[in-house]
Amino acid sequence: MPSFTSTAIRRAEYDDRTETLRIWFVETGGPYVYHDVPRRLFERLCDAASKGRYFNDHIRDRFDVSVP
């Protein structure tokens, strides 16, 4: 489970079996569970120079989410 040095996202993990992405945010904690997310988006999030910007542009408001 990757941990980030991001000002927005503390860590993320992905479950291939359920296609769920779990994200822990710096300010609000988590995990927030995003459903039916393709693995490639998780991989790109991990590789992004700005985790917060990638999340906002490609994940936020695009997938159903369960919040803590």
Rank of each mutant, 00 (worst) to 15 (best):
22 R>H: 11
23 I>M: 04
5 T>K: 13
62 R>F: 01
13 E>I: 06
68 P>V: 06
23 I>W: 04
49 A>Q: 13
52 G>C: 05
60 R>E: 07
27 E>R: 08
26 V>W: 01
59 I>N: 04
65 V>S: 02
11 R>T: 10
20 T>L: 00
5 T>N: 12
13 E>R: 06
2 P>F: 07
52 G>K: 13
45 L>Q: 02
22 R>P: 12
13 E>N: 15
8 A>H: 11
49 A>P: 02
25 F>M: 03
10 R>M: 11
66 S>G: 06
23 I>T: 05
1 M>Y: 12
25 F>V: 02
3 S>W: 07
38 P>R: 04
34 Y>D: 04
44 R>W: 11
67 V>M: 04
31 P>T: 01
42 F>N: 07
53 R>E: 08
23 I>H: 02
13 E>P: 10
56 N>M: 10
3 S>Y: 09
10 R>W: 06
28 T>F: 14
30 G>N: 03
43 E>A: 06
62 R>S: 03
16 D>P: 15
51 K>V: 11
63 F>W: 03
61 D>T: 13
14 Y>I: 00
52 G>Y: 14
50 S>K: 01
65 V>R: 00
30 G>V: 01
38 P>Q: 05
61 D>A: 06
32 Y>I: 04
39 R>E: 15
52 G>N: 08
51 K>G: 05
57 D>R: 14
64 D>W: 08
9 I>R: 02
39 R>Q: 15
36 D>L: 06
11 R>I: 11
18 T>P: 14
45 L>G: 00
14 Y>T: 00
68 P>K: 10
15 D>S: 07
53 R>W: 11
9 I>A: 03
19 E>Y: 00
30 G>R: 07
35 H>Q: 07
34 Y>Q: 04
55 F>S: 05
30 G>C: 05
64 D>S: 13
19 E>Q: 08
9 I>D: 00
57 D>L: 14
42 F>V: 12
32 Y>F: 09
39 R>K: 15
37 V>L: 06
68 P>A: 02
68 P>F: 05
53 R>C: 15
59 I>A: 01
50 S>G: 10
46 C>A: 10
8 A>Q: 12
45 L>N: 01
33 V>C: 01
5 T>D: 11
38 P>C: 03
27 E>M: 14
26 V>T: 04
51 K>W: 07
34 Y>F: 13
56 N>E: 08
43 E>Y: 04
25 F>W: 03
11 R>W: 10
36 D>E: 05
6 S>C: 15
63 F>R: 03
63 F>L: 05
10 R>Y: 12
21 L>Y: 06
16 D>S: 10
67 V>P: 14
14 Y>H: 02
26 V>M: 06
21 L>F: 08
52 G>A: 14
30 G>S: 08
63 F>V: 15
1 M>I: 05
28 T>P: 12
18 T>L: 06
17 R>S: 03
12 A>D: 05
18 T>R: 10
